[in-house]
């Protein structure tokens, strides 16, 4: 029983980690704590519905459609909302992302109707027994793809030239401008990446559950994940995602499904009071 719970917790946690990674990329680049990340997840799920069910695209093309669509939307959000507000007080920035999520939710419900939809993809959906555990292939695929994406982006930031320039821009906008980096383009790219990672998470979450705007709450679990792991830390986001997934599954199995949120946020509160820079973060508080 415990093993089963841990398996699904880690699998879901991998998806949360992926969404949280997107969140941290945005946070590091533009200092925006993005409350719309949950709706980005929803958007990904609906992009998948559009590509697969409405347009009937073949699966590889559908994936391309989702990634391109999400990247474009991320750039659009940055250009329309984030750039005009740069340098404003923190509440304005938080609120604009909240307002964005309200607008997105309303827009999606108007376009697609408020009822949920099922998403079916050619991904394997069966299960098999392994070491006494019932392993769902979909969970396994989701986890594997999440880890692949996280690895790919880790390598991208570490070893490519664009990744280096993005890290430089995130370190200091002014210094990067002086060094000749196109900071604006880097920030736009960060939003594109952040949105895309959330959308990939949405593709899987939409398939594991039902595609509806309610997925936002699940997507928003990236927030506590990021804080628990350490605001500015990429490995921290992934660790935080895994922890949140495991706690969620443990709480809903052994206490009650409704207690999952409170357990996660209780841990968040403890972390904030005891170790505000997070598990893997660096002790440089008051910056944000």
């Amino acid at each position: 029983m415990l093993g089963q719970v841990l398996f699904s917790g880690l699998a879901l946690g991998s998806i949360y980690g992926l969404v949280a990674l997107g969140f941290v990329v945005i946070l590091k680049a533009t200092d925006v704590f993005n409350f719309a990340q949950g709706m980005f997840v929803v958007c990904g799920a609906y992009l998948a519905v559009t590509a697969l069910s409405l347009l009937g695209l073949p699966f590889p093309l559908a994936i391309l459609f989702i990634i391109l669509g999400a990247a474009l939307m991320g750039m659009g959000v940055h250009a329309a909302l984030i750039r005009p507000l740069s340098g404003r007080p923190i509440l304005s920035i938080i609120m604009v992302t909240i307002a964005l999520s309200i607008v997105m939710r309303a827009g999606i419900e108007i376009l697609y109707g408020p009822a949920g939809r099922t998403l079916s993809t050619p991904l394997p959906s069966g299960g098999f027994l392994f070491a006494g555990l019932r392993i769902s292939q979909l969970h396994l695929t989701a986890a594997a793809v999440s880890w692949l994406c996280m690895l790919a982006f880790g390598l991208f930031f570490r070893f490519t030239s664009v990744g280096l320039l993005m890290r430089a821009a995130a370190d200091s906008h002014e210094a990067a401008t002086i060094a000749g980096v196109k900071v604006d383009a880097m920030n736009r790219l960060a939003w594109a990446i952040g949105f895309t990672l959330a959308a990939i998470g949405g593709l899987f979450l939409g398939q594991l559950q039902i595609v509806s705007t309610e997925l936002e709450t699940i997507g928003l679990l990236a927030l506590p994940a990021v804080v628990i792991g350490g605001m500015q830390s990429i490995p921290g986001a992934i660790l935080g995602g895994l922890l949140v997934g495991v706690i969620e599954q443990l709480a809903s199995t052994y206490i009650s499904p409704k207690s999952a949120d409170v357990m996660i946020y209780a841990l968040l509160l403890v972390i904030l009071l005891v170790r505000p820079w997070g598990l893997l973060g660096q002790k440089a508080i008051n910056r944000v």
């Binding site: 030239s161 280096l164 320039l165 890290r167 430089a168 370190d171 210094a175 990067a176 060094a179 000749g180």
Partner: peptide, 26 residues
């Protein structure tokens, strides 16, 4: 035209090598 600004403004979280690499990126 490159600049070494007032207050140095190096990329604090990046390594020395990466700092130079950002400069050389153009």
């Amino acid at each position: 035209v490159a600049q070494a600004p007032e207050g140095r403004m190096v990329f604090k979280t990046l390594s020395v090598e990466d700092n130079l690499a950002v400069g050389a990126a153009s």
